[in-house]
Amino acid sequence: MKKSENEGVQLFLDEIKLIDSDKSTTLIEIRDIILNAFPKTKERVMYGGLVFFLNDEMFSGLFLNKHHVTLEFSNGYLMEDPKKVLEGKGKYRRHLKILTTEDILNKEVSFFVKQAV
């Protein structure tokens, strides 16, 4: 796990390890995918999860839920989704529900992250 420059984010990451180690592993793997795809990404704790910004514009967020991790995309409605795995019917946002670390590959998280900006 890459340590965050943002103290609040690092505290959040440390706390979720204590609360739910399985979901924290999943969240941290997805976070690493985002940060590797967009190295200049800034992250903050907002809305009860982590949100990601590039050029001061929010493009994605990661949130812990009782049974899964949600990966949200601010402009998900623009994304290619040939396997129809994105969820949500809002005007702009779409999300992936990640139940296990295997879902990171099965739902092609990297494919969607690369489209997020």
Rank of each mutant, 00 (worst) to 15 (best):
K83C: 00
G48R: 07
V69R: 02
E80N: 12
D56A: 12
L71H: 09
E29Y: 03
N6A: 03
L64V: 06
T26M: 13
M1F: 08
I19Q: 14
I16D: 05
N6T: 05
N65S: 07
E57Q: 15
R93C: 03
F59R: 10
L78M: 10
Y77E: 10
D103T: 06
D81H: 13
G48S: 07
K2M: 02
E15A: 03
L50N: 01
E108P: 02
F112M: 07
T26K: 04
K66D: 06
L86S: 10
L71D: 01
E57P: 13
T101Q: 10
Y47D: 06
Y47F: 15
K107M: 09
G88N: 11
E43N: 05
L78Q: 09
N36S: 15
V109Y: 04
F63C: 00
I16S: 08
L62C: 00
H68L: 03
L35F: 12
F73W: 08
L78G: 00
Y77S: 13
L64N: 06
L27C: 14
M46A: 15
G76P: 10
T41M: 08
I30L: 11
I30S: 01
E29C: 02
L11M: 00
I98A: 02
L27D: 09
K17L: 10
K107V: 07
N65P: 05
P39N: 09
Y77M: 10
K107Y: 12
I104F: 04
K83Y: 10
Y77W: 10
L105Q: 15
K40E: 14
T100K: 06
K2W: 01
I28T: 11
G61A: 06
K3P: 04
I98G: 02
L50F: 08
H68V: 02
V51P: 09
Y92D: 08
F63M: 03
L11E: 07
